[in-house]
Design a protein around this nucleic acid. Structure first.
Lengths: 135, 135
DNA sequence: ATAATAATCTATCATTCCGATAGGATAAAT
DNA sequence: ATTTATCCTATCGGAATGATAGATTATTAT
C-alpha cells in the first residue's frame, strides 16, 4: 500500500507543477485544495526540498516552487524519496539493497525471482514517466 | 514492502509444492528448512488452508498438502489472500475497492492514473503466473 | 488403552511505523 | 514593526506487524 506521505507528496508536486508561471505556492494553498493536513504536508514538502526537487521562499509571496522542468523530474527518483525502495523486498532492491536474514541463497529463492520481475515491471513504468505525465 | 506473512507464505507454498508425491508436510519441517518462526508459520498456513489452497492432516504422518495442481494455483489469488490488495491505493483496487476520502474525483487524480498503470502491470505478471512458476 | 504426533484455537505481547499535532524559531516582504 | 510563510524539533495515539505461549483436538502407532 502506498503511504499517505507519498500520495500527498505526489499530489502536491502535481499541484505545484500545474502552475505555469512557477510562482511559489504556499503550503496552506496546497493543503486546502488537496484536502491534506497542513502540518503533515509541511514535513513532506520539506523532504522534497531537501532532496532537491523543490525550492522554497519564505515570507509573503513565498512558498514552494519546482527547481526543474516537470519533464525532467523522473518518477523513479520521486518514488524513492517519498516511498523508499521500489522493490517489494530489499534483497531485490537496486538502491536499498539488503540481504535477507532468513534466505540462504537468493538464486534459489522463489520469492526473489517473482519480486524481481515485479520490480522490473514497476521500474519500467516509473523510469519512463516524469512529473509532467501526471497532469 | 512485502509483509513477512506473504514472504513466508510463498516460501511455504513452494516448499510444499516441490514435494512430488504431495504427501503432507509438517509445519516444523517447513519452519526449519526455510528459517521461519514456527508459531508464526502456523497462522499463515491456517489462513492458506481456510482459503482453500491447502489441505491438512493431523497426527503422525500429518501436515499440509496442496489441494490443487501447482499449475492451477494462480499467483493473483495467492497474493490477494496473503498480502491483500494488489493495487497500491484502494481506489484503483479491483477486489478491495474503497473510495479515497480526500480525493473528490478519481478521473482527475494524478495518483490514480499512475497507480492504475502500476496495478495493471503487476496484475499482468501475477495473473500469468502459477505456483509452479516459482520453483 | 496409551503415548506420541501434529494441527487448531485463543490470547497476548513488544515493537515499530504511520499519520497527525503542537509550538516556537527564522526569514522575507510590506 | 507587523504580517506572512517556511523551518525545526518534539511528541503522540493508534494501528499493524511479527512473534510467542499455552491449551485443545484429532490421528496414528505401539
Amino acid at each position: 500500500m502506498l503511504s499517505k506521505k507519498t500520495k500527498y507528496g505526489l499530489k502536491a508536486l502535481t499541484f505545484i507543477a500545474r502552475r505555469i508561471d512557477n510562482k511559489p505556492v504556499p503550503i496552506a494553498t496546497i493543503a486546502k485544495n488537496e484536502n491534506i493536513s497542513q502540518k503533515f504536508l509541511e514535513s513532506i514538502l520539506l523532504t522534497l526540498r531537501k532532496s532537491g526537487f523543490l525550492g522554497s521562499k519564505k515570507g509573503k509571496g513565498g512558498g514552494y516552487y519546482l527547481l526543474k522542468d516537470p519533464k525532467e523530474i523522473n518518477m523513479s527518483s520521486v518514488m524513492r524519496i517519498l516511498e523508499g525502495p521500489i522493490a517489494m523486498v530489499s534483497c531485490v532492491s537496486l538502491n536499498f539493497y539488503e540481504k535477507c536474514d532468513d534466505c540462504p541463497d537468493e538464486n534459489t529463492c522463489s520469492v526473489y525471482k517473482l519480486m524481481k520481475e515485479i520490480r522490473d515491471g514497476n521500474l519500467k513504468i516509473y523510469n519512463n514517466k516524469s512529473l509532467s505525465d501526471l497532469f
